[in-house]
Amino acid sequence: MTATADEPKAKHGFIARSWAFLLELWQVLIRPSSVFGLGVLVLAGFAAGVIFWGGFNTALELTNTEKFCTGCHEMKDNVYAELKSTIHFTNRSGVRATCPDCHVPHNWTDKIARKMQASKEVWGKIFGTINTREKFLDHRLELAAHEWARFKANDSLECRNCHSADSMDITKQSPRASVAHQRFLFTKEKTCIDCHKGIAHQLPDMRGVPGWQ
């Protein structure tokens, strides 16, 4: 597969030419610079790294805002509209959860993993998988099941980013909530999502979902 100089290039296929290009590039990369000093190269590399890393994270954070999420009518007219009447949007103290607070892990590696997963959602957006209310309702159970599975797998991490079991004052909860949290949450028998489904959006057809009729 190596390309030698005495053979005419037209005889070679695409793979061979690509391989030759890569070899040439490698030769350039490993050859020491004869123009720039080592310090210049290091500093330039450092500056470029800062700009790239900063730009990457800025772009990442831009996709992590409610404004970005509700930029598509699929989110704005369905799930965001439903969120507005719930306690996670409006409540006595005015503290509220935005889309990424619950739907994107806050930890960096988990966040990147989720963002890569979300590339499938871009596919869905391009091909209009849920571009009408009816299509959205048809897919709602599947979409909700993904989220329930994620919360179940990470022990409701995104709930616990704000709602810490250690900081819960059960004496200030209603008797019903206090008993349920002591029996199921504190014993780690259940996680938040097991009981608190459909608290921020409407529920899909719940037949067959554990704990529902």
């Binding site: 009447s85 459909g198 057809d205």
Partner: peptide, 9 residues
């Protein structure tokens, strides 16, 4: 916020 409709109760 308790949902009572065709989808669930």
């Amino acid at each position: 916020g308790y949902q009572i409709d065709l989808n669930g109760n």
